[in-house]
């Protein structure tokens, strides 16, 4: 590591420790710092190109150094956590209900982690991984699916009767959690700027594109049944355009959106609704725009409201 990288690393470390970012997850902190660098590029360049920092460098070079240092710092903290979430938190035995396969949990987890790590290395995809990471770390799947099964209403019906998942609740929860981690994989196939990749401007992708992505990804993830890969990747599509979308995809789409900007220990202002309830209610009003399943949102909203989430 050369002197410039050391300086960039030190600078980024201190930015990450800023109290304004205290309650954010590592990926959100990374995003905030990237936005900070973007918004203040002119002022920062004036200072950071001085003799004390990176003399003679233009902003692209400085920004590149800082971004790389930032990714390294965040990876150092995040990757062991993601590895732990996959190794200790996920159970892939639900695969046996989808196809007959001799399964070595450890091997599957190792391969799956390698794949998620490759997603994480992709500049755009790592941002989307935030939803899966937060959902797994803060037990969103457990909370909402447990409640949905207790209620035995729309979500339960869609999972067990429409999608016909003949497996227990815990397996279904793992199915959804894996789908959540797979959702950003589609970005591995897109150019860095999603807008140019057939999106409708709302983050959803066209079905033909998703089908192509499934074909590519299933080659890489041969250890996973195709329906699991489809469940993850179709979470990027619109339910309005694809009414037969799996319930696990629809749930992964909603939970990914809900968790993407989740801030643990967020202080709720007096007079404001909780973060989850607020997000779900806004999503209910924008369901057509984002391609969400509104009935699913309704049920999750009721769950959040009843539980004070």
């Amino acid at each position: 590591m050369n002197a410039d990288q050391d300086k960039a690393s030190l600078f980024v470390k201190r930015l990450l420790q800023n109290p304004s970012l205290k309650n954010l997850t590592p990926l959100l902190r990374e995003e905030q710092i990237l936005q900070f660098l973007f918004v203040n590029s002119r002022q920062l360049h004036a200072t950071l190109s001085s003799a004390s920092f990176f003399p003679g460098m233009n902003w692209e070079q400085i920004s590149g150094l800082l971004t790389q240092a930032l990714h390294n710092e965040v990876d150092n903290q995040l990757m062991p956590e993601i590895e732990g979430l996959i190794r200790d938190g996920l159970d892939f035995s639900f695969i046996q209900f989808l196809r007959e396969q001799a399964l070595s949990q450890d091997k599957v987890k190792e391969k799956f982690y390698s794949f998620v790590a490759s997603i994480h290395e992709h500049r755009e995809a790592r941002r989307e991984l935030s939803g899966a990471y937060n959902a797994a770390k803060f037990h969103f799947v457990d909370r909402y699916i447990d409640e949905a099964f207790d209620r035995n209403e729309y979500v339960h019906f869609e999972l067990t009767k429409v999608q016909r998942l003949k497996m227990g609740k815990e397996h279904i929860k793992n199915y959804i959690a894996v789908s959540l981690f797979l959702k950003p994989a589609i970005l591995l196939l897109t150019a860095p700027n999603r807008q140019s990749s057939g999106t409708g401007g709302n983050g959803t992708l066209q079905l033909q594109f998703i089908e192509k992505a499934v074909a590519v990804i299933k080659e890489k993830l041969a250890f996973l049944p195709e329906q699991v890969i489809r469940s993850g990747l179709f979470a990027n599509g619109s339910f309005q355009e694809h009414r037969s979308m799996d319930a696990t995809s629809r749930i992964a789409a909603v939970l990914s959106g809900l968790c993407k900007n989740y801030r643990p220990n967020m202080e709720i202002d007096r007079g404001a609704d909780t973060a989850e309830k607020s997000w779900l209610n806004v999503a209910r009003r924008n369901y057509k725009f984002y391609g969400y399943d509104v009935k699913l949102l309704d049920e999750f909203y009721k769950i959040a409201a009843e539980n004070g989430w």
């Binding site: 600078f11 905030q32 002022q43 920092f53 709302n202």
Partner: peptide
């Protein structure tokens, strides 16, 4: 709120929780 959310969906939010003043010390301190 829904309108703001839709506009965030189409144009990436470009404000940061970090303020330039927050890091002035950091820049001066080096």
């Amino acid at each position: 709120l829904p309108m703001k959310d839709r506009s965030r969906g189409t144009t990436e939010a470009r404000s940061s929780l970090l303020d330039f003043d927050d890091v002035k010390g950091l820049l001066d301190g080096e």
